[in-house]
Design a protein around this nucleic acid. Structure first.
Length: 210
DNA sequence: CGTTCGATGCACT
DNA sequence: GTGCATCGAACGT
């Protein structure tokens, strides 16, 4: 496999149909640089939330103060507090005005594993590798992503997504997790049988070799 | 293995 | 006041 220089994904990557962006985000690398060090992981599980017609999308009831980033510039982050506990991070997609985003649900840890474990409050080294960034709330904690990152530009700055030319393996589409409505839309895309992919609907939908 | 359930904060009705 | 794009501990089997 050829090595290649890591390239930050440009805005044009995000300004496309959300399902395309979701599929192509799998295998790219989410990176956060802080004074504590660099933490990064390969994206192995995502979900698409598309438009006011999608009952599970935060834009389902039109624009509100909270969901403003969804309507804005693609390639920016939409971060919000979920269940009063967890910060969830999305990448905004589609041209401005079309509210849509891709939720990052799981990473395979690559860089800064010790830092991730510390942020998770896990005993050094004793925790299992693939639990560090398994689940959308866990990965933001491991990378140090907070509400302060809401609206931040993912195409420049300390929080970004890059292409390292990694090959994650076959992916599979299935219904999204943890939602009550919109279960008919198989808009979750995950690497098949990857240990960092959170549980629930496996085996649904078609697998696609990458 | 499996399922249930409490913690916790804020946007929105 | 209600409901949520969650997590993990605490049970039951």
């Amino acid at each position: 496999m050829p090595t290649r220089r890591a390239e930050t994904l440009p805005r044009s990557f995000y300004e496309r149909p959300t399902l395309t962006v979701a599929a192509e985000l799998v295998g790219t690398v989410l990176v956060h640089r802080t004074r504590q060090g660099l933490a990064a992981g390969m994206i192995v599980e995502v979900e698409a939330y598309i438009g006011e017609d999608d009952p599970a999308c935060h834009a389902a009831r039109g624009p509100t103060p909270r969901n403003t980033p969804l309507y804005g510039v693609p390639g920016r982050a939409y971060v919000y507090l979920n269940y009063g506990l967890h910060n969830l991070v999305n990448a905004v997609t589609e041209p401005p005005g079309a509210p849509a985003a891709v939720l990052i649900r799981a990473l395979e840890p690559l860089d800064g594993r010790a830092l991730m474990a510390r942020r998770r409050g896990l005993a050094g080294g004793r925790s299992r590798e693939h639990e560090l960034c398994r689940g959308p709330g866990n990965l933001t904690q491991a990378l140090g992503i907070t509400l302060a990152h809401n609206g931040r530009d993912l195409t420049r700055g300390s929080l970004y997504v890059e292409d390292r030319g990694l090959r994650p393996g076959a992916v599979e589409w299935s219904p999204r997790i943890g939602i009550r409505h919109g279960l008919d839309r198989p808009w979750r895309c995950a690497v098949v049988s990857h240990p960092a992919v959170s549980g629930a609907p496996k085996g649904t939908g078609a697998t696609i070799d990458r």
